[in-house]
Design a protein around this nucleic acid. Structure first.
Lengths: 184, 184
DNA sequence: TTCCACTTGTAGCGGTCGCTACAATATGCC
DNA sequence: GGCATATTGTAGCGACCGCTACAAGTGGAA
């Protein structure tokens, strides 16, 4: 019997990642936060990249579950409402750390680092598809474009938030929502 | 007479930063790319943070000049057109590296790192003000909110781009532009 | 020419990084 | 109990990090 299973370890890693960010994600600190040693992390994961990849997998699963809970499969909403609710969720206290991590992941991906690039793209595709499924079928424009628009708006607001301009983020989302409402 | 002035050094640092990113910005590589030594960087700048801060200052100035050239002070445009043109510019080949760097800067800022936080916030405020000045005075909603909306849309598109989803970024900008057009 | 301040090179400090070699311990199976 | 296998600890490698001490070189002013 191992002291910790790979999965338990992963949960703690995800926690630490959310709390401290990708920049602070070196083996020894991660291990310490998970009450184990760097040696053990590399026992369960062949290298740091595999560890991160697995952790992001877990995290993406969690996020999807949270989204699902707030917005069950089958339900749909007009773009403006979807944007408003997603904005509210992603900017709330419990998803903030995830959005920060998301920006860090994107930053690393933009420089071609792996596994960040492929992991990030996969998560993004997942979110795009998720949003698209929640858009009414009778939408006049194409739904993929509308899904992309909503995701871009949420991510843009996350950037404003990350720089401490929460009022700007709030009004940006409101203005974009208003525009989407008028657009039909 | 020094071999290089502080300003010449800074120009090359900015170039390297744009090319290789914030993650690769350690003193020795930066110095090498500028054909000098880490020793000299710390002769002209009291530490790495001061160097970065100065470099970002130079970069922000450059960007503003480019924006200014494409969109002189005094000119205004309706939100949809402004968004379209800004999107085109920031996603073009010559501003891409700057947008990547912008995301990296935001990522660092979101973790409270300095000087990234204050530098990033200052640049963001500058852009917001710049956009606001180019919005028609007779805009019905408040102009700050519209400026924030446009900036968020551009930044959101930059995130999609950074993750290799350029088609999604394109259609997101188009959809948001269309919505802004309908909203009056 | 002498002198002094500015500029630059060399070397190295203490620290962290990812990762590995190797040995010790613990655990389940026969 | 004996044994193989799974788990964990200890130690350290070579590379890089930001930064500093110190001395040498350089050029202009007097």
């Amino acid at each position: 019997m191992a002291k910790y299973t790979r999965e338990e370890l992963l949960e703690k890693i995800v926690e630490t990642l959310l709390e401290r960010g990708l920049g602070a994600a070196s083996l020894r600190p991660l291990a310490k936060a998970a009450a184990t040693s760097d040696r053990m992390l590399l026992y369960y994961f062949k290298d740091k990249n595999e560890l991160l990849q697995a952790a992001f997998g877990v995290l993406a699963g969690r996020l999807m579950a949270q989204l699902e809970a707030a917005f069950p499969e089958g339900a749909t909403a007009p773009p403006a409402e979807l944007l408003a609710r997603l904005g509210e969720m992603t900017r709330g206290a419990d998803l903030r750390p995830a959005m920060r991590l998301w920006i860090e992941l994107t930053a690393a991906a933009s420089r071609g680092e792996e596994p960040h690039g492929s992991v990030g793209a996969a998560i993004l595709d997942g979110f795009l598809a998720w949003i698209e499924r929640r858009l009414p079928a009778e939408l006049d424009g194409d739904r993929p474009a509308m899904a992309a628009a909503i995701l871009a708006a949420v991510d843009g607001a996350a950037i404003l938030d990350a720089l401490g301009r929460e009022e700007a983020a709030t009004s940006a989302l409101r203005a974009l929502g208003h525009a989407l409402e008028a657009d039909r």
